[in-house]
Write a protein that binds this DNA or RNA. Sequence first.
DNA 1: CTGTGTGCAAACTCTTTGCATAAGT
DNA 2: ACTTATGCAAAGAGTTTGCACACAG
Lengths: 143, 143
Amino acid sequence: MENEAELTATPTVERLRSAGLRPTRQRVLLAELLFGKGDRHVSAEMLHGEVLDVGEQVSLATVYNTLHQFTDAGLLRELAIDGSKAYFDTNVSNHNHFFIEDRGELIDIHGENIRVDGLPQPPEGMRISHIDVVVRLVPDNKK
Amino acid sequence: MENEAELTATPTVERLRSAGLRPTRQRVLLAELLFGKGDRHVSAEMLHGEVLDVGEQVSLATVYNTLHQFTDAGLLRELAIDGSKAYFDTNVSNHNHFFIEDRGELIDIHGENIRVDGLPQPPEGMRISHIDVVVRLVPDNKK
DNA sequence: CTGTGTGCAAACTCTTTGCATAAGT
DNA sequence: ACTTATGCAAAGAGTTTGCACACAG
């Protein structure tokens, strides 16, 4: 055998390959963290933190790059909710969110449940790419 | 008369006073620009640019401070739509938005028109503070 | 006068980029 | 080998902050 380190064809590796992404150590690790435990909402910093927790090392720049590559490949969806920081959602299907303002925490609302009616016609030459519904939550007591 | 420069009670000045804000030159100017021509969506930079266009001078830091003071006073609503920059809406009533992704442009959708159905119960101890519906638009042709 | 607001520059956060090095195929 | 990805550090955008000075009441 001449192969030094041929990557084994784990599901994650296959997933990356079919998305057209070379399964590098960093990408495989990030993909495992992202897709290994159900639907998740992560920021770049959170994900980078998880990498360190697991005792691995991936630069923050690479985390950003990878999140965008995954988004372009359709593995993630980027959420513009908080304003100050970007969240990425591992659930790419049609759904919406509760957003707990105080904690910056997101909770999925499944797509089948919500219906938006009464939308006016989009302006000439435009079409709807996506509708985001964000239900902002505050504690019962607080104003 | 002893008064050097008592501010005349223009509508703008009154509006600031009843919001509990001292009508300084900067605040009056910014309020005129913001509320003088119907409903608007502005970023801090845009508003600062308008100040310069009018031949006046207000520091960018003061523009930011003032936008937040106005928001706290209920004269503006802050919109978290773009992710990278903050927009402020002079229309504080219940309504939603088209967002033209390519141009970063916002268009109001009046509140009466849109109806959101099928919301699940918020988690225990939380109440809905506000529901944002953002209809993202792309040109007809583009993917 | 007294306290609040402003301006400036510096600091900060989140994110992106350029380029030399490393790794996948 | 050849190409693409990574890491680092530096740059970049947008926004906030600290403090001396200015102004409204």
